[in-house]
């Protein structure tokens, strides 16, 4: 019983430690006056309204969506077909993808940023394109895992064989059978990648900075001018991530259900 109480207390402290800063930030986004009291003395939507009236925020939001979404779309178009071909037809080369996935994790953002600047600045390549390229590679682990797990859930090679024996070309088999089957897993991987890139700050700040102001750079700026506005940005970010997480969870469940054959 004593052991149980200690465990419960530890869990409670852990939850408070994790949740309290988030709750406080959320409250601050809607707080009117909040100086000497535990909870705000009044509530307001003023900070959110100010945020949505600020063109710089809307543009920063648009840039974040464009950059993260662009990187995800490029990754889906370029990396996913490669993973399909390797996993289905050349499985012995899969170890190289796995090595690449590990390498992505092993580069700290600061080192990556310095390396990218040193290499690409001399060629006159726009730095935002360089960051986009780095993002495409950076989400390789999420895209690879999403695709690989989807293919593992179904016997993808056998589905392709069955479709071809029924008269489908390789492309038809891929489009009509495999893609609809693995789509929920792929989409979940894409959303996860998007949410990771949407919150990325180190690389974009060091390599491009305020020349391409994303939501994270905007947030950084607002931290020094208005805590309420910064909290409102965080609130919007958390809501967006919550929605994405909900969709990912739904899709993952759907993917598992669909392949339970």
């Amino acid at each position: 019983m004593k052991k149980r109480s200690f465990a419960d207390l530890f869990f409670l402290l852990f939850v408070v430690y994790i949740v309290l800063p988030v709750v406080a930030t959320m409250l601050y986004a809607f707080a009117g006056k909040w100086n000497k009291t535990i909870l705000p003395e009044g509530w307001t939507l003023k900070w959110l309204a100010t945020l949505f009236q600020d063109t710089a925020f809307i543009q920063a939001f648009g840039r974040s969506v464009l950059l993260s979404g662009g990187a995800v779309i490029i990754a889906l178009l370029a990396i996913v077909p490669a993973i399909f071909v390797i996993v289905l037809y050349f499985p012995k080369y899969e170890k190289w993808i796995q090595a690449a996935v590990v390498m992505v994790y092993s580069f700290p953002g600061v080192i990556l940023a310095v390396g990218l600047i040193r290499v690409y600045s001399q060629f006159g390549v726009p730095m935002i394109v360089v960051v986009l390229g780095a993002y495409v590679i950076g989400i390789l682990p999420y895209i690879y895992q999403g695709t690989r797990n989807s293919l593992r859930n179904v016997d993808a090679r056998q589905l392709l064989d069955a479709a071809q024996l029924l008269g489908a070309s390789k492309m038809q088999a891929f489009r009509k059978v495999l893609l609809p089957t693995v789509y929920p897993g792929l989409f979940a991987g894409a959303l996860l990648s998007f949410s990771v890139l949407f919150g990325e700050f180190v690389l974009i700040n060091l390599v491009v900075g305020s020349r391409f102001e994303t939501v994270q750079i905007y947030l950084m700026k607002k931290l020094s001018t208005s805590g309420h506005i910064a909290s409102a940005v965080v609130f919007i970010y958390i809501v967006l991530m919550g929605i994405l997480t909900f969709i990912i969870a739904k899709l993952t469940k759907q993917a598992k259900g669909a392949t339970n054959v």
Partner: peptide, 20 residues
């Protein structure tokens, strides 16, 4: 001759039904 042109049918151990 490609599999799709052989007029050969196949039933697999894992059924290989299209889940979608």
């Amino acid at each position: 001759i490609q599999p799709k042109e052989r007029q050969v049918g196949m039933v697999f151990q894992s059924y290989a039904l299209f889940p979608n």
